[in-house]
Amino acid sequence: MTKYGWLSLLLSVCMINPCYAHRVKIFAWVNGQAIVGEVYFSGGIKAQQAKISLLDAQQTLAVTTTNRKGEFHFDGLDAKSYQLKANAGPGHQATFSIDAQEFGPVSRATATSSHQLNSSGNSTASTSIPTPTPSSFDSAAVVSLPSLDTLSAVTNADSSAASSTEVNQCQAQTRAAIAQAIIPLRKQLDAFEAEIRFRDIIGGLGYIAGLFGLWSMMRQRRV
């Protein structure tokens, strides 16, 4: 009875909500000239009124707080590398870095992204491609990636100034479109990384049993 009592106590504790945890996560991405992001506790609960600082080389540039959905944004930024620091209540802090490359050279590219992605796809088709992707399964993103190389190769051959700027613009737009397209994926990955997995819990309990068992064993040997 007592044995099962303890076991059931432990199990009931395990079972109530095994996927929730206490850790703050901040995730952000670039949208045009703004940095947009969200702060949440692992387990998905949004951190409201968390203080967000925008830093550039340890210098605080701006401070804001998250809204009810745990979201925040900084507008009108130069294309530089930034660090974001989230402080969600006493002692809960998380950081995130934004690379300058994420801004991309042309900010208006994001607005016309879907159209430009198609046009770059078309231009790939018109110029000769070494390996055309046969499967329709790998869609736009795969097709547009080799196009960058192909186009720049064409530019080098022609060495005409007009087509060079066109290609640069095209590249920038494609890059922005890809960046935009993978944001949901990055979000999902970030949330996945923060998730507590059952095997971690079981592993931790195993460690505890093992460590105390070891201690017990050492004590017995000494006596």
């Binding site: 109530i16 945890a21 206490h22 951190a47 049993a209």
Partner: peptide, 26 residues
């Protein structure tokens, strides 16, 4: 020792039981 181990395990999993509370969570 066994009792201490059980309580350590309880503490380890207790922090997974987590409640949203106002702007934060506990």
């Amino acid at each position: 020792i066994p009792f201490a181990a059980v309580l350590s395990a309880c503490f380890f999993v207790a922090s997974l039981i987590h409640f949203p509370l106002g702007p934060s969570s506990v």
